[in-house]
């Protein structure tokens, strides 16, 4: 089963919490915007991605089963 990381950019406030949890996938750059580096990370990152979902103070991140 594939899965995807989706960020609701209307909710995201670029506080980079997700980047602290999973820098391979989430990056807040100099322009203070969040970039999703890899929308379909490997399964080995699933637990970390779920942690990022729980930790996002804006609840802007979702994991969507493809």
């Amino acid at each position: 089963m594939g899965w995807r990381v989706v960020v609701d950019m209307d909710l995201c406030e670029s506080n980079a919490v997700c980047m602290a949890v999973l820098p391979e996938v989430f990056e807040v750059r100099d322009d203070d915007l969040l970039y999703v580096l890899d929308e379909t990370p490997p399964d080995s990152m699933r637990a970390k991605a779920e942690e990022a979902v729980a930790r996002c103070p804006k609840q802007a991140i979702a994991i969507v089963e493809a």
Binding site: A16, V17, M19, R29, D32
Partner: peptide, 12 residues
Amino acid sequence: MNRPRHIVQSRG
């Protein structure tokens, strides 16, 4: 203040 990325780095 308005430096989220550097706070994450600092945290590390």
